[in-house]
Amino acid sequence: MAEKSLDCLGEACPIPLVKAQKEMERMAVNDVLIVNVDHSCAMKNLPDWARSAGHAVEIEEVGEGEWDIIIQKLK
């Protein structure tokens, strides 16, 4: 189970989503992707997309207005 980090700090929608989608394609099932974001909009579309694509998502609040979106690729 590999783990990869993706720094999207300072990037506005839809860039974090597009980057995460590309990264997920390269990953194997059960691998974990951690996306660092600070744009609140990414908190809506990124988890929404990941869940609709069938993956598991949890979010850690790292600081005020800064989050790690943790996605485990499930298929």
């Binding site: 929608c13 839809p14 809506k44 997309w49």
Partner: peptide
């Protein structure tokens, strides 16, 4: 076109773009 491919539900999120 869901998930940021052109259909949106949030004006505040996608206005600037």
């Amino acid at each position: 076109f869901l998930n940021d491919k052109g259909i949106s539900f949030c004006a505040t999120c996608d206005a600037a773009r």
